[in-house]
Design a binder for these strands. Structure first.
Length: 903
RNA sequence: GCCCGCUUAGCUCAGUGGUAGAGCACUCGCUUCACACGCGAGGGGUCAGAAGUUCAAGUCUUCUAGCGGGCACCA
């Protein structure tokens, strides 16, 4: 079989996904075992706009590793894909495109045509993301793909809305909301961002009515809002203002009379201790206004321009122009006390970065605090869901649920779920699942539907249940809910995670997911957040092209839940690992004549197994156990490291090398066939272990192995096409497989490795050319190690490039030898007559002895501490004693070697 | 203001009480019949600092410094 020397990831990436997909490998129905346990994940639906970034690739890798792992274990596995309509951001992008290409606004087009255009956009970009996900190898069930605006999901949204309305959780009314003057819509508290900014604090003086010239000074960052002031508030305990309570001030520029009120909210230590109150344009002032029954004077309109109520001089002015004019007028009137530099935080629209204008507006609201109560109890009583990592996310989640505010649901947009509310000609509202139902309620068909749409996150909140068919009691819903894990980024714990828990608990009576895995953030190499505006993002597709999907997945799995700076070196090293796998398989395949991956080692017939076989089997099962535990505990870095070192160090560096002589025998003997088959079996099993992380290369190689076939599939997938993804994942059972862990074989091979390494060290340090053969004299006074070395002389000779190797209890060693002390009193000598520099060799041994003495000193100090001997566990103490004895023995051995070298 | 996280080899990061690790980078030697995306051998860390608990601390506690994050407030 011709196999290229270097692995080409593209070839494998193009070969397998379509086959897996068309064979139905991703569908849970492929699992024929009716009693199979269930594993399910609902993907965080990406926005259709734009393309996938590294954060998506990270989440998808984690989910795919879990899905493939569970699938191979025989779980009925569903990873459900889908997309989010992402109301505001999608609408903004299409509007931008419309402006750029045709110079039109959405209003020029009209609602219907505009929405049709957004659908068109979705069809175009959705395809791109599907392509990217296929490239990633994501084993999602495309037949169950969902979109938040699908008819069925829309039904779920209406059901959610109507039920909450009927229960009084949703209401229609006035409230102080975040308004984006550019996007012309209300926003929830979670869709706005605080930003700190350098600005000014203006000290304005308001004259007291009637009293000869007395003034009260208020401090403000927004002088233009004074036009809407309807009071000044002071703290009731503030003695400076005690006599002013109930007094009346004359509001400059407006001439309006406003009262001085007392309110606990006011902090006497801040500013002047007197606060101007603008109930119509500030959330805190709004609340104060309600407490004191103050009028609300709206002076700023939805375009952030001043209204008629702001007065003729200001009407129509932009808020910032009005600010300058107000300040100028105060200065002219001598009422501007001072202006100081001041850093404050400003609220901006999360999408367009426009400064938010708090406005009183009629909107739909959800009493989130009531919906949040059940999830909070679930967390407190049963600690569900389980957050990974637990800190800090569990606390973050709890804190959020404890402080819930009403959620502004309505958006003045066109792209999204239309609010299921209709108004009759008198303005009475009817909330219903359908227009017909609303008509029946109203007793008329002259109804107008509310023009607004719902916050995108309202439909997202239903994702785990709506995608499975809710409100219908579908088989999928019964089978796959609650989902097993949610894998997502930390910035949407409030926006999304908590809300899915609310709807899940409300409508299904239980958690939406068992676990919540929060991924880390990937920064650029300077530690900066990747962003489009900074143009410092790394496109996953570019990395796939450069290093291959499998290598990239290993990096992403290793990143897991830690924040990391992106580093190409890391990908390169895993690319090299993929190549290592490729070449190890290449070696096995080049030597596979007469062999079979299916029957080889059998893992059982001990009498046929060499020391190396027993050793690799033991290493393999320890690896299997460690990797499974790591995946179960979401310790992906640990899993990857374990696999990497097992494959590279144990399998390639030692097993292949130790068995090479037998595997490459010229004659086709039973011994050669057996060795080859065992080698193939280890490879085949290793590929299975690697498959969840590296789906492409493992499939590519697995299919080439002689002897693989449909009979190797997991019982649950009987009858399916042969593919590694449906084989059973190797497992280690403490009860049945404990005999496969062979500590004797492990310590024997460890001794062998030490011997070989010491000889190689001698060769290297003494500058003996690689081509130059040496002789080895191995003295092993203990029977057992002597037997070990005797049976392994061929391997020892091969790996140290020795021409002859003698083993004995106590061999006499020529003075001109380089020597090394080994365990169990053994030692190895390399006679080097004429090649050895005595001084250099003494120095080498001296260095080794110093190292050992340092360690012995430390250990003896510890052992001589009676407290340690008394209080430390006995096994610790005896372990230490044994080590000290071993080191002492080696020190003595080296001492003798040095004496023999003495002039 | 409250809460939280991080600080380990030049770089990116593992390591939740018992001999300080990996990859990359670095040094030396190798066209050794799977692989130079490789093989072999090396060098490199007072685990941010201080105090404490413990027989034993990178690991637990407290404090300090630097960096980062979340929440509240910001008139």
């Amino acid at each position: 079989m011709e196999i290229p020397k270097t692995y080409d990831p593209k070839q494998a990436e193009e070969s397998h996904y379509a086959r897996w997909e068309s064979a139905g490998c991703f569908k849970p129905e492929t699992n024929r075992d009716a009693s199979a346990p269930v594993y399910s994940i609902a993907i965080p639906p990406p926005n259709v706009t734009g393309s996938l970034h590294m954060g998506h690739a990270l989440q998808h890798t984690i989910m795919d590793v879990l899905a493939r792992y569970k699938r191979m274990q025989g779980f009925r596995t569903l990873w459900l894909p889908g997309f989010d309509h992402a109301g505001i951001s999608t609408q903004i992008m299409v509007e931008r495109q419309l402006k750029k290409e045709q110079g039109l606004t959405r209003h020029d087009l009209g609602r219907e045509k505009f929405v049709e255009r957004v659908w068109e956009w979705n069809r175009q970009y959705g395809g791109e993301i599907r392509m990217q996900m296929r490239r990633e190898g994501a084993s999602v069930d495309w037949s169950r793909e969902r979109f938040t605006l699908d008819e069925k999901l829309t039904r779920a949204v209406r059901e959610f809305f109507v039920r909450c309305y009927e229960e009084g959780l949703i209401y229609h009314g006035d409230g102080m909301i975040n308004w984006c003057p550019k996007d012309q819509t209300a926003l929830s508290d979670l869709e706005v961002e605080k930003e700190s900014q350098a600005g000014k604090l203006y000290y304005l003086q308001y004259p007291l009515k009637g009293d000869g010239g007395r003034r009260v000074t208020v401090a403000t960052t927004r002088p233009e809002t004074m036009l809407g002031d309807t009071a000044v508030a002071v703290n009731p305990d503030d003695e400076r203002y005690g006599d002013l309570l109930g007094a009346t001030l004359e509001l400059p520029l407006m001439g309006r009379e406003i009262p001085v009120v007392a309110d606990e909210f006011v902090d006497p230590a801040f500013g002047t201790g007197a606060v101007k109150v603008t109930p119509a344009h500030d959330p805190n002032d709004y609340a104060m206004g309600q407490r004191h029954n103050l009028p609300q004077v709206k002076v700023i309109d939805p375009h952030a321009r001043m209204t008629t109520e702001a007065g003729a001089e200001f009407e129509g002015l932009d808020r910032y122009a009005a600010r300058e004019l107000v300040v100028q007028k105060f200065e002219e009137l001598g009422l501007l006390e001072k202006v100081v530099d001041y850093e404050f935080s400003i609220t901006k629209c999360g999408r367009c970065r426009t400064v938010i204008e708090p406005l009183i507006s009629t909107q739909w609201f959800l009493k989130q605090a009531e919906l949040g109560r059940a999830p909070l109890e679930l967390m407190r009583e049963r600690r569900e869901p389980r957050f990974v990592p637990e800190t800090p996310y569990e606390k973050v989640y709890i804190n959020w649920l404890e402080n819930l505010h009403d959620w502004t649901l309505s958006r003045q947009l066109w792209w999204g779920h239309r609010i299921p509310a209709w108004y009759d000609e008198e303005g009475r509202v009817y909330v219903a699942r359908t227009e017909e139902e609303a008509r029946r309620q109203a007793g008329t068909d002259k109804l107008t539907q509310d023009p607004d749409v719902l916050d995108t996150w309202f439909s997202s909140a239903l994702w785990p249940i709506s995608t499975l068919g809710w409100p219908d009691e579908t088989e999928d819903l019964k089978t796959f809910y609650p989902t097993s894990v949610l894998v997502t980024a930390r910035d949407i714990i409030f926006l999304w995670v908590s809300r899915m828990m609310m709807t899940g608990v409300k409508f299904r009576g239980e958690r939406a997911f068992d676990d919540v895995y929060i991924t880390g953030t990937i920064f650029d190499k300077h530690g900066q957040r990747m962003s489009k505006t900074k143009q410092n993002g790394i496109d996953p597709l570019d990395v796939f092209d450069k290093y291959g999907v499998d290598a990239t997945r290993l990096v992403l799995a290793s990143v897991g839940s830690t924040d990391t700076r992106w580093n190409d070196n890391q990908v390169e090293s895993y690319r090299n690992f993929a190549n290592k796998i490729w070449n190890a398989a290449r070696f096995c395949l080049m030597n596979s004549e007469g062999a079979n991956a299916a029957t080889g080692i059998g893992w059982a017939h001990d009498k046929d197994l060499s020391l190396a076989d027993r050793w690799i089997r033991s290493r393999f099962f320890k690896t299997t156990r460690a990797v499974s535990q790591a995946i179960e505990n979401y310790q992906f870095y640990e899993a990857v490291q374990t696999l990497y070192h097992f494959f590279w160090d144990d399998f390639c560096d030692w097993y292949i090398e130790l068995t090479k002589a037998e595997v490459t025998l010229a004659e086709d003997t039973p011994a050669r066939r057996g060795a080859r088959s065992r080698l193939l079996t280890v490879l085949e099993q290793s590929l299975r272990l690697l498959h969840p992380f590296m789906p492409y290369i493992t499939e590519e190689l697995w299919l080439r192995l002689p002897g693989v076939g449909a009979e190797m599939l997991h019982d649950a997938y009987r009858g399916a096409e042969p593919t590694i993804m449906l084989t059973s994942y190797p497992r280690f059972s403490e009860k049945f497989d404990y005999k496969k862990i062979d500590e004797q074989a492990e310590s024997d091979v460890q001794a062998l490795i030490e011997l070989i390494s010491r000889v190689r060290n001698i060769r290297s340090e003494l500058g003996i050319k690689p081509g130059e053969a040496v002789s080895l004299l191995i003295s092993a006074p203990e029977e057992q190690s002597r037997a070990l070395f005797e049976t392994q002389t061929a391997q020892i000779a091969r790996l140290t490039r020795a021409s002859d190797t003698s083993v004995g209890a106590q061999l006499s060693v020529p003075r001109a030898s380089a020597r090394a002390a080994l365990g169990n009193g053994a030692e190895v000598a390399v006679p080097l007559e004429g090649l050895i520099d005595f001084a250099q060799e003494r120095a080498r041994l001296g260095k080794e002895q110093d190292k050992l003495r340092g360690e012995a000193e430390r250990l003896e100090k510890q052992l001589s501490n009676p407290q340690f001997v008394e209080r430390a566990p006995e096994e610790k103490v005896s372990e230490l004693r044994q080590r000290v004895a071993d080191i002492a023995q080696r020190i003595v051995a080296i001492e003798q070697m040095l004496e023999a070298l003495a002039e």
